[in-house]
Simulated scan of single mutants.
Amino acid sequence: MLEFWTKKDKENSKNKRVNFAANEDLLNKEETFEFIKQLGEFWCNPYNYLNPEAKKYFAILNTYQNRLWQMVVSVCFYKDKNDENKGIFDKILPQLVAYNALGLIYGKGGSSGLFWSLMKANVNIIKENKIKNIFESSINLPDLKMPSLENFIDFSKKARPQQIRYILSLYAILYNENQVMQWNKDNKNYSLVKAEIEHIFPRNWQNTNYNGWDEKEAQEYLEQVGNKMFLEKKLNIQAGNGYFNKKKEIYQSSYFIEAQDLATSPQEDWLKGDIENRNK
Rank of each mutant, 00 (worst) to 15 (best):
A98W: 13
N277C: 02
R17T: 11
M146I: 11
E276G: 01
K157W: 00
Y210W: 13
V193A: 08
L149N: 06
G226K: 01
D90Y: 08
N133G: 09
M181H: 05
N178T: 09
G226A: 02
K280E: 13
A239E: 04
K145R: 13
A54V: 08
P46W: 04
S117Q: 15
Y255I: 01
I36N: 07
E177F: 02
P161N: 15
S137V: 08
P161I: 13
L144G: 02
N62H: 09
N241L: 00
G87T: 13
P46H: 03
E41V: 10
V97Q: 06
N122A: 08
G109E: 10
K29I: 04
A259S: 13
N187L: 06
M71Y: 07
Y171W: 07
G240E: 06
P142W: 11
D80H: 12
P46I: 09
D261I: 06
D9F: 05
N28T: 09
N66D: 14
N45D: 09
H199M: 08
L235D: 11
V73K: 11
L50E: 08
L96H: 07
K10M: 10
V180H: 05
N189I: 13
N187W: 03
N209W: 04
F201H: 10
F244A: 03
P94G: 03
E223K: 12
V225W: 03
I250G: 01
N124F: 05
D25K: 15
E249H: 05
V18Q: 12
P161Q: 14
D80S: 11
E34D: 12
E53S: 11
D154P: 02
Y166G: 01
T208R: 15
R67H: 10
W205T: 04
Y255N: 15
T63V: 15
F135W: 11
G107S: 04
S137P: 09
I167Y: 00
L61M: 14
I275S: 01
I237N: 12
N62W: 01
K233A: 15
E258T: 03
N12P: 04
T264G: 00
N23R: 10
N184L: 08
L192R: 02
K8Y: 00
T32N: 03
K7D: 04
N176M: 01
